[in-house]
Design a protein around this nucleic acid. Structure first.
Length: 429
RNA sequence: GCCGGGGUGGGGUAGGUGGUUAUCCUACGGGACUGUGGAUCCCGCGACUCGGGUUCGAAUCUCGGCCCCGGCCCCA
């Protein structure tokens, strides 16, 4: 019987897991240094958690099922909704801001391709109840900080504000579902589709021109001035623009200026309200976006008190992909430093005692369990990059000693059995 | 859901116009070597993605499924 992995899933072996763990830990360390605490939510939720936010249509992309008592459940396709659900249930009265981060796998029933799997990992955060240019700037800086710390070089952070476009649409009397449709077309970046849509809903000439110009505006902070001139007649849109300006000012102070202002970001989701940002790495095929986020009002949608939230998530697998493409060296330190090799079967029990003492002293160690030949042991230690081999042979044992071989230099030293732990402690720590 | 390219031992491959025991490298296990590591030699292990069809005979031709790679759609 051939057992196969389900489509779009992966197995991760030792080396790859070391790299992933290293990246995960680096990001987590940075998040925590900004005051975020880790949370975890269930891998499956009630199906309705996801359908209320995004409509029945997304059921096509969700792994959903009924449990034995007929409950409609779903493997989570993303983590924002579960986190919002948890917040409403447990944290509404917690002191603000609530800063939390998560790392976990999500599931989507989609056609796998480059950077897209049916089980994939997201590492992200939410900052709830502290809407301000400063918090948005801090969140964006933190995202950049993570990537810098990992040594990722060619990423681009694009920042925009949905309030600008949305308010222009409101001024043009384009509201509700129609407005969302227009935003979706903008998100796609398909100018033709957008034009067709705008004329089909009888948008006035001025507004259409204004929109088409705005969504093409990309560049450094100076484009904000141009945008301001363009939309000077719309007060609300200008307020959104000022919001963006303040955000950029704060970003500067947080020491991050390597961004692109992009007024064409729309993020297709109805619940985003103001600031939005996306991070791209080119050369990753069709899935170049490694992160996306912004400020939104999801809590209220789920029936909580009105509170703004800013957050983003890294597509963890895509970050790994980007690092690999760039051949970033990811530190992969071996946990095992010492291999204890009893050279004949009489000494294996002594070997177990020694290895266990080492482990209890926090020194990673292995011992030969099956009576391998010394040649094989040395070869094994070599492939696993174990630094030292303790040779436990009858000759030394009679004198209460072992021979320690340094695998790098090949040098050997005689050490009293009673002093093995302290010997390695000084060597390794 | 749609389009294109693929699938041969654990990993990487040769074979492809049908024809005996399916090639090579590597990894792994054992040995030459009774206590010293990426060497050498020997031995061993181990594969045609699955199912149907054509045929005396299919890894090879054909149809379908599954899976992989890339793209479209979508991307909460």
């Amino acid at each position: 019987m051939e057992l196969q992995r389900p489509r779009g899933t992966r197995d991760f072996l030792f080396e790859e897991m070391k790299e992933r763990k290293n990246v995960e830990n680096t990001m987590k360390r940075i998040f925590e240094s900004y005051g975020y605490g880790e949370i975890k939510t269930p891998i499956f939720e009630e199906l309705s958690l996801f359908t209320t936010k995004s409509g029945e249509g997304i059921k096509d992309q969700i792994y959903h099922f009924q449990d034995k008592s007929g409950r409609d459940l779903a493997l989570r396709p993303e983590l924002t909704a579960p986190v919002a659900r948890m917040y409403i249930k447990e944290l509404q009265k917690a002191p603000k801001p609530v800063k939390m981060y998560y790392f976990g796998s999500c599931f989507r029933y989609e056609r796998p391709q480059a950077g897209r799997f049916r089980q994939f990992w997201q590492l992200g955060c939410e900052l709830i109840g502290a809407k301000s240019p400063g918090s948005e700037a801090e969140v964006i800086s933190m995202a950049a900080h993570c990537l810098d710390e990992l040594g990722l070089e060619n990423y681009e952070i694009h920042i925009g504000n949905l309030g600008i476009l949305r308010n222009i649409l409101i001024d043009a009397k384009i509201l509700g579902d129609t407005q969302d449709q227009v935003m979706a077309a903008i998100d796609k970046g398909d100018a033709e589709e957008l034009k067709t849509l705008l004329s089909s809903i009888n948008t006035d000439q001025d507004s259409e021109e204004l929109l088409l110009k705005l969504i093409d505006m990309k560049g450094d902070a100076s484009i904000l001035k141009d945008a301001e001139t363009l939309i000077n007649c719309s007060e609300n849109a200008c307020n959104a623009l000022f919001e963006l300006e303040k955000l950029l000012e704060s970003l500067e102070a947080f020491g991050f200026s390597n961004y692109t202002v992009n007024l064409g970001i729309a993020r297709g989701l109805d619940y985003y309200t103001g600031t939005v940002f996306e991070i791209y790495v080119h050369g990753l095929g069709a899935q170049k976006q490694i992160s996306g986020g912004g400020t939104y009002n999801l809590i209220e949608l789920f029936g909580g008190e009105k509170v703004e939230s800013t957050g983003f998530a890294f597509g963890f697998d895509r970050v790994m992909e980007a690092l690999k493409k760039q051949e970033t060296v990811i530190d992969k330190e071996e946990a095992v430093k010492v291999f204890v090799a009893p050279l004949n079967s009489d000494l294996s029990l002594t070997g177990y005692e020694i290895v266990q003492k080492l482990r209890k002293s926090n020194i990673g160690a292995e011992v030969d369990l099956v009576g391998k030949k010394l040649k094989k042991i040395l070869s094994y230690a070599d492939t696993k990059q174990i630094s030292y081999v303790v040779l436990l042979g009858s000759r030394e044992f009679e004198e209460g000693k072992v021979t320690v071989k340094d695998m790098k230099s090949g040098e050997q030293e005689s050490v009293n059995i009673s002093e093995v732990e302290s010997y390695f402690k000084t060597k390794l720590m």
